[in-house]
Design a protein around this nucleic acid. Structure first.
Length: 504
RNA sequence: GCUGCUAUAGUGUAGAGGCCAAUCAUGUCGGCCUUUCACGCCGACGACUGGGGUUCGAAUCCCCAUAGCAGCACCA
């Protein structure tokens, strides 16, 4: 079979199985089906709950896309809940960045809530929890409590009456305590084998810094606000990382105290991402020190950084759905993401020549020749680029090194004689067959003077060269630099193109 | 240390006792197509962590070991 040519194969296939031939011409969409969600048939309410401390990165993409996938599949609502209950971890500019990133990802968000708008709701439920004996105000310092907890011992505060607790709670709200002096704890099982589960905090005081959106000093901790919100917002299913397993256990206590029906939880495994910086604090520090150009620096794992590199949201989505929500720890594969991106980008990207590290040469005996190359080999209707070769051309240094003959794509063949490091080129005819016969590589080129300067930014550094003038009209698009790879044209300034390398 | 989760090819993934000498994708290699080392097509390579047990039969169930990960905050 492999010995047959393409047309021969098609003819053969038509004889034995015509229906397969039709199938062949369809593009293969590998839509992966994720496992069904328990009890989701009637629709779901799910949520994506980022902390506004910086822009979204690939880790957020997994959580948000998996949830989005199921909302699309079953129908329902998708709540964006901004979890800004820790003034220390709130960055004013991040509110906007998170929204931008979500839009870029194309999430089907139906509702947006800010937890900082809901403090009174948490206060209210906290009071109720105290009233039913499910929580108490603890005046111990954190370290003392920790020691007691590890010994499965109650702290003295645990025995206070409901009225005493209510009074102390009111004092917390009235600002009569300072940071660290008082906290509201949920009464759980002190003998629980997992120390993480014992009498955790629900409310605490933060005096500084002041919250950018709300004037308050008492804030809920996530296990309280998340439980209250998940119930109030009617969340049916929660998909999140395994780092939240213990939190799920803690949140169940709240659901049990109030006799609420808890959502169905799924916890996917840890996803290691190598090659980029992900930690918000080191990104911020790097930007401050000038190590990175900004939140979209190509060395970062933010969505805006990979977007700048020409990765499309659809590719990110497909890559994340491929990964799914398995509980196994995995290492994120850039290779697989690039493959997904290529599926999206290849049909769209126009082809152009980019000559990196150019060497200018004169081709002896060459006629003036106008080259016509397709903008896209798979879509001739898109048109052509025209390049006029008048004898002096630019060639990629690395591609002619050591060669005695090359073919300039869509132009003609040249022979190369080497005088030390200096190449002397002579015209060697137009016949493609000659180049084939001599196994001469077909390389990209540019007429000297016609190309425009271009910097190709890669994660390993910048590559200087020249590209076709038409590239200047592709700002914001991903193009393919033939034989080099895909790149997103970022900007054109003073006639100089700035492009970011995506992948081969 | 305590508590818990996980363990299929280089990477990701399917597989919920016989249909599995294990799926799909990606990758690598070879070939075809092609005036790109792109796309497309054909083919090859490549895995059930180890050991016990249950069973007529186990990648699938149980136990032990090993490894990885998570949590044990008045962060999310």
């Amino acid at each position: 079979m492999a010995a047959l040519s393409g047309p021969e194969r098609e003819r053969l296939l038509e004889e034995i199985a015509p229906e397969l031939l039709a199938e062949l011409t369809e593009t293969h969409e590998h839509e992966r089906e994720l496992p069904a969600l328990q009890g989701a048939e009637g629709g779901v309410v799910m949520r994506f709950a980022p902390n506004p401390s910086g822009p979204l990165h690939l880790g957020h993409a997994r959580a948000s896309i998996l949830n989005d996938y199921y909302v699309r599949r079953y129908g329902g609502r998708y709540v964006l809940r901004i979890e800004d209950t820790d003034p220390r971890r709130v960055d004013t500019e991040a509110y906007g960045m998170v929204l931008d990133d979500i839009e870029w990802l194309g999430l089907g968000i139906t509702d947006i809530v800010y937890q900082s708008d809901r403090l009174d709701i948490y206060y209210d439920w906290c009071k109720k929890l105290i009233e039913i004996g499910g929580a108490y105000v603890c005046l111990c310092d954190a370290e003392r409590f920790r020691d007691l907890k590890l010994q499965k011992k109650a702290c003295p505060c645990r025995d206070r009456t409901v009225d005493e607790n209510l009074e102390l709670w009111q004092q917390m709200l009235d600002g009569e305590f300072y940071e660290g002096d008082a906290t509201v704890r949920v009464k759980t099982d002190l003998t629980h084998p997992d120390p993480a589960m014992r009498d955790y905090s629900a409310m605490r005081i933060v005096n500084t810094p002041i919250h950018p959106r709300v004037d308050a000093t008492v804030f809920p901790l996530m296990n309280f606000s998340v439980a209250v919100d998940d119930h109030l917002l009617g969340i049916t299913h929660v998909i999140r990382g395994k780092d939240h397993i213990a939190n799920t256990g803690r949140q169940r206590h709240i659901f049990d105290y109030f006799r609420w029906k808890s959502p169905v939880y799924y916890h996917y495994g840890r996803m290691g991402i190598s090659g980029v910086v992900l930690s918000t604090s080191s990104m911020r520090e790097g930007i401050r020190s000038g190590l990175y150009t900004g939140w979209d620096d190509v060395h970062l794992g933010t969505l805006r950084a990979i977007a700048r590199r020409g990765i499309e949201p659809e590719a990110v989505r497909n890559a994340m759905v491929d990964i799914g929500m398995g509980e196994t720890d995995i290492t994120f594969s850039w290779e697989n993401l690039y493959a997904r991106n290529k599926e999206v980008i290849d049909p769209k990207a126009n082809r152009y020549f980019f000559v990196p590290d150019p060497v200018e040469v004169t081709v002896e005996g060459a006629p003036v020749h106008e080259a016509h190359a397709l903008l896209h080999p798979g879509d001739p209707e898109r048109g052509i680029r025209t390049l006029v070769a008048e004898g002096v051309i630019l060639l990629p240094r690395a591609d002619i090194a050591g060669r005695s003959m090359v073919r300039l794509k869509d132009l003609y063949n040249v022979r190369i004689a080497w005088d030390g490091d200096t190449p002397h080129l002579t015209y060697a005819g137009e016949a493609l067959e000659d180049a084939r016969r001599e196994k001469a590589p077909i390389i990209q080129w540019l007429p000297a003077g016609a190309g425009i300067p271009c910097t190709l930014h890669t994660q390993d550094g910048d590559v200087e060269g020249f590209c076709e003038p038409l590239v200047a009209g592709e700002v914001g698009n991903v193009v393919q630099f033939e034989r080099i790879g895909f790149a997103r044209i970022d900007s054109v300034e003073d006639g100089r193109v700035s492009a970011y390398f995506a992948h081969r």
